[in-house]
Design a protein around this nucleic acid. Structure first.
Length: 289
DNA sequence: AAGAGTGTCAACCGCTATTCT
DNA sequence: GAGAATAGCGGTTGACACTCT
């Protein structure tokens, strides 16, 4: 015996969300908080399946989301992380807390991938300069080193620092009046989030931590042990399978803190699969938390 | 001005891991 | 423990907007 179905498959509406539907969803989440998605359609009267409600919330209605106008820094960070993690968009999105995995994925597919190919730079998903096995062995070793570094770091009595999604960049952003003030104006409703963000302001003030999902909401992605100013990146590592390659993207994961110098090694050392040489990456500043 | 071609992105689909009964 | 549903992820699609001819 399993759980009851989340929603009726019959009569489920598909296609673009209307403002009315968004308001219904936001109002409900304002009162109950995100999560328990199977209850959302029945409690709100929305003719949407729970999956669609969750997607709408995490990708468009959730507070603190910025849409469009990727900065140069974000662009380069995405390129770096894609080279490192492959098409693990949720993991990549966890390093850009204002962006959703779907947004990053779209941006990669429509802009960055073409741009890199035009420049003759290969991405890790399309071409790897070393064999997968080689890369994985090196990755395993480095993850081990990173874990060791983390253990060492934990042995110090350092104050906790917030996970990336709570870092000042997001906090500053979340306090802005409009989540889409920098986005390109379009005529489609879905891209016009200003009205929604206004709705959400009240909720943001009284809600402690929106979202409790995995990578897209980010709350389980990051250890709370890194400190402000520490040059580390958080990278998931597979614990149940050695297949931690970019292609896999599945399997249970745990979290290790990558020292920035190690990340730099990964990123710039072509012999271990760093797809981009220093000259290609230009003046990228590595993202520091 | 109109049709064709191309680009963008919101949403859906199918899958796996996790959770629940 | 088994089976079923949910949550979440990445890949893909299709509608719309924009550009070109």
């Amino acid at each position: 015996m399993g759980r009851p179905p989340c929603c009726d498959k019959v009569g489920v509406k598909k296609g673009p969300w209307t403002p009315e539907e968004d308001i219904l969803l936001v109002s409900y989440i304002q009162d109950h908080g995100p999560g328990n998605w199977r209850a959302v359609p029945t409690n709100t009267g929305l003719l949407r399946c729970s999956k669609s409600c969750r997607l709408r919330w995490t990708n468009y209605l959730r507070p603190g989301i910025r849409r469009g106008n990727f900065t140069d820094h974000e662009e380069k960070l995405i390129i770096h992380l894609q080279a490192l993690l492959g098409n693990r968009w949720a993991a990549i999105a966890s390093y850009l807390p204002e962006r959703t995995d779907n947004d990053i994925k779209n941006y990669w597919n429509t802009h960055l991938h073409k741009k890199l190919e035009a420049n003759g730079v290969s991405s890790s998903s399309s071409h790897q300069p070393i064999s997968k096995g080689q890369w994985e062995r090196r990755l395993q070793t480095d993850i081990h080193m990173a874990k060791q570094a983390l253990c060492d770091a934990l042995s110090f009595d350092k104050p906790d620092c917030p996970p990336p999604e709570l870092k000042p960049s997001l906090a500053n952003y979340s306090s802005r009046s409009s989540a889409s003030s920098t986005s390109t104006t379009t005529t489609t409703y879905a891209s016009s989030t200003e009205n929604i963000s206004r709705l959400l302001e009240g909720w943001m003030k009284k809600s402690p931590t929106p979202g409790k999902g995995r990578a897209s909401s980010g709350s389980t992605q990051h250890s709370e042990t890194n400190n402000p100013g520490d040059s580390v990146l958080c990278v998931e590592s597979a614990t149940t399978t050695p297949d931690v390659s970019a292609e896999s993207g599945k399997g249970s994961t745990d979290q290790v803190q990558l020292p920035m110098e190690l990340l730099e090694t990964w990123l710039f050392d072509e012999s271990i699969g760093g797809s981009y040489g220093q000259e290609e990456l230009g003046d990228l500043e590595l993202y520091e938390f």
